[in-house]
């Protein structure tokens, strides 16, 4: 049988299940402690390269902690059991991401990660996190899913992919595992919102306003992330092209 022959409801029940998640992550993470092969050697980094990587990883920790806190809050707001179960898997994914980035920081000699993250966190990302958690605290499912699973996940996906293409082998493997997880999160967000907007097209205007509010924070976060990666303006991959395609498909363009 092909997956394409599944009944629509069966498809959603299957891909949002804990069973599906467990078998999927076992496939690409099962033999990778902290997200990478155990025998990958520590790369030689000079002081500047190490410092830039520490700053970048600290900001990844900010993003992952935001997603961990937000997705755990969203479990309570989920509209049905399948979505609730899926979000529980996302909570586990986000906790793992935070853990592998903290572990990588420890490998780079950071002994007080909390203080280091606080010191190096970029203001745009902190402002985004604060706004996301306010949506969750207000019980606003649509805005929170949009902010987290469409905006934040798209941003992370773009930056992580690019970073993986230029990173040292150890960081690269960690990032590739995270990107594989992000596919599920991105897809959940877009598809959940897409179904809702198809039923309630009047909500599109409100979400477009949320988008307009978040966009400057997203762009600022992108810019700051690329600066931390040491990229000149001409070398930066197109800012959020996938994010823009996603909001276009959802009809959230201005």
């Amino acid at each position: 049988m092909e997956p394409h022959e599944l009944d629509q409801d069966d498809f959603i029940a299957q891909v949002q299940s804990f069973e599906f998640w467990f078998e999927a992550v076992e496939g690409y993470l099962g033999d990778k402690p902290y997200g990478r092969d155990a025998e990958v050697p520590e790369p030689p980094l000079d002081d500047l390269e190490r410092d830039a990587l520490v700053t970048t990883l600290c900001n990844y920790c900010v993003g992952e902690a935001a997603a961990l806190e937000a997705s755990s809050g969203l479990v309570r707001l989920a509209p049905n059991h399948h979505a609730q179960i899926f979000l529980a898997t996302q909570v586990a994914d986000e906790a793992r991401h935070l853990e592998v980035f903290l572990h990588r920081l420890a490998e780079l000699g950071i002994t007080d990660a909390r203080a280091e993250v606080e010191r190096r966190a970029n203001p745009g990302l902190l402002a985004f996190k604060e706004r996301l958690l306010r949506f969750v605290d207000a019980g606003d499912w649509e805005a929170a899913v949009f902010a987290q699973n469409v905006v934040l996940e798209s941003m992370e996906d773009t930056v992580f992919r690019f970073h993986a293409s230029v990173a040292d082998p150890k960081t690269q493997q960690v990032l590739e595992g995270v990107v594989a997880d992000e596919r599920r999160h991105l897809g959940f967000g877009e598809n959940d919102l897409g179904r809702r907007l198809a039923r309630h097209p009047e909500d599109r205007e409100r979400l477009a306003a949320v988008r307009a509010e978040l966009d400057p924070l997203v762009l600022r976060s992108f810019e700051e992330a690329y600066e931390a990666l040491g990229l000149g303006r001409d070398d930066r991959p197109s800012l959020g092209r996938d994010y823009l395609h996603s909001v276009e498909r959802l009809g959230l363009t201005a």
Partner: peptide, 12 residues
């Protein structure tokens, strides 16, 4: 007109 499913991102 064929329907396909993307299981990695849950899209139809």
């Amino acid at each position: 007109g064929d329907k396909v499913y993307c299981m990695p991102c849950m899209s139809r």
